[in-house]
Nucleic acid binder design. Sequence first.
DNA 1: GAGTGCTCAGTTCC
DNA 2: CGGAACTGAGCACT
Length: 703
Amino acid sequence: MEENNNNTVHASDSVDKSRIVEAKPLRSLAPVLPNHIQSCFPANYPSGFPPFCSFEKPREIPIPKGVEEIAVDAKTAEEIPGSAKEKTRETPVAANVTPIRFYKSSVDEEVNPRGGGDVNLFSKGLNCDEFVDDRVKRGAQNIQNCKEFLKRKKNKKTREAGVDGQSSSVGVNPSLNDDGNHESVNHVLMTFDSVRRRLCQLEDSKELNSSLSIKRADLRASNSLTLKGVKTNLRRRAGAVPGIEVGDIFFFRMEMCLVGLHGQSMGGIDYMSIKDGSKEDTVALSVVSSGVYGDDTEDNDVLVYSGQGENFNKKDKHVTDQKLQRGNLALDRSAQRHDEVRVIRGLRDATNRSAKIYMYDGLYKIQDSWIERGKSGGGIFKYKLVRLPGQKSAFAAWKLIQKWKSGSASRNGFILADLSNGVESIPVSLVNDVDDERGPAFFTYFMSLTKPKPFGLVQPSLGCNCKASCLPGDLNCSCIQRNEGDFPYTANSILVSRKPLIHECGTMCRCLPNCKNRVSQTGLKQHVEVFKTRDRGWGLRTLDPIRAGSFICEYAGEVIDRAKVCQNDEGDNDEYIFDTSRIYQPFKWNHDHGLLGDGSSNVSSEDYTIPSPLIISAKNVGNVGRFMNHSCSPNVFWQPVLYAENNQSFLHIAFFALKHIPPMAELTYDYGFVLAGHAEGSSAHRRKMKCLCESPKCRGFFG
DNA sequence: GAGTGCTCAGTTCC
DNA sequence: CGGAACTGAGCACT
């Protein structure tokens, strides 16, 4: 493999290295494209890495002309909600002076005392197993009691919890209860999904041990959060909802309830009555279009929405017309008042057909309404909602992406269909619609680590004896034992909790390669693409909606030792280093104490345990992970994963979605940074990069 | 303020 | 795989 260094640009050459360099672009190495490209390795290269891999010759790639142009905002600068410590007030956007804390251990325990006294029925201080056993013993009656208890308490608690200062450790800052912001919305959503994942984990593991099941983890999680006041935007309102952006995605109706986007848990039309002077009036707030009921969704900016009400009277078996009441009346009134109505578009997830995804598509106004005859002959109200101009493209962009993927629409700046050259099972497209650079510098695409060093802490596992696939709750499985009895992933391969270390099954295990405990070894599962950012070189973004906890990819590359990093620092600065020993901003991803009351150990620590630092260079060898840019408010985090190959255990770095990530959002993680004076080699030569993430929490630099 | 009716969920079962 | 059955949470309204 030949590396042509003459063509690479060294940003450091003419710059004083002791200063923070304005690294622009971050990855601006000129493309070194061989004359010939041939993909000459199988998709599953057995060992080592493919001898050769590159891009197609750029000239040969046709650039579609006159392609439909679409402004897709790939900006993702979002905040970390999980930095559990509640800020008493918003810090003004003084980005570059944010103080940094220099510790890795969690500070949440100290600054964030648990709210006492506010314990729900599920919380009895039992550990996980006891909790389950206890529930089994008491059986259905206990469940019933719980339900009734919840029902009685709910209305009161919802309001009180936020005002009660003691519950602020898990709840939402009281002032944000009625009117939220970006941070409170994020906090609620992340907490919800974390609790939900944990409930799914309990449910999965119980299948073997008992007959009692946790049905509808979404409802249970919602219940739990409501009791603790973890809600925001409780004040019902028409128009935009603070902290929620056009294009945001949701995976459960309850998520939209909890953040005030759509108040109905099932109903399609959310509305409220208002006082207009002395008159009482009713107005529509939001509608959810699930694609059923024959809603017309042909035009992306128009939604023809059907009113509510059955066309068939079950009692006397009559065909009936819909009536101008409830939601229908509200839509009618909103039309006359020219009020804005929020529209949420629902679609079945293409990759996971059982799941439904909801996307907030912004504000619409009702332009027309009429009555149609339904199939049964009953009258159905129809409302024509038209999208207000000037909003970010959301649903339209999503639909366009489907066309890109199916090949029925061409696109601007398209360079290459699959940068991985068949290594990944899902093609990784390469696009540049900002300038004429034709691709990143040459590298070899490989999905995992080369030259890995055996992991010292754990002696090589003999592997588990499970047949076919390891099953959650099977405590005889040695891999599950290593994970402290918890199966790390849910049935649909979502990571449940961040952990010091995750043990996956490896080649020594008897289970098959499709075992659920090998999530990080299976390559890309999402459609992602490498694209040119405006000011940060090449980046990685997703075409698919991604659920929080989804596996993104491994950080692939060559395992190197520290001496080599120094060498690189002196010479060609290696921008593709991943180093576990850097300082990373602590954050909390697992659910808060007290929300479940299961006393489970998974909330105790998110501090990674890595005995000796793992340093990976993806400069010459790597996968899509090397293209992920840094952000101080990332949407992806890394997690150490351990599994065995050929009698030895190796540590890998796996990336998971920190929160739900909408289509076209850039994927970013925290690069961490090296302490001044602690840098490898001479600190004078250690260059920090100026951060361009534009997040309000930006600390100004990284690396 | 407790109870009822209604609803573009989400699962499981057949 | 697709529909039916089933259990639902939250809201307006009574």
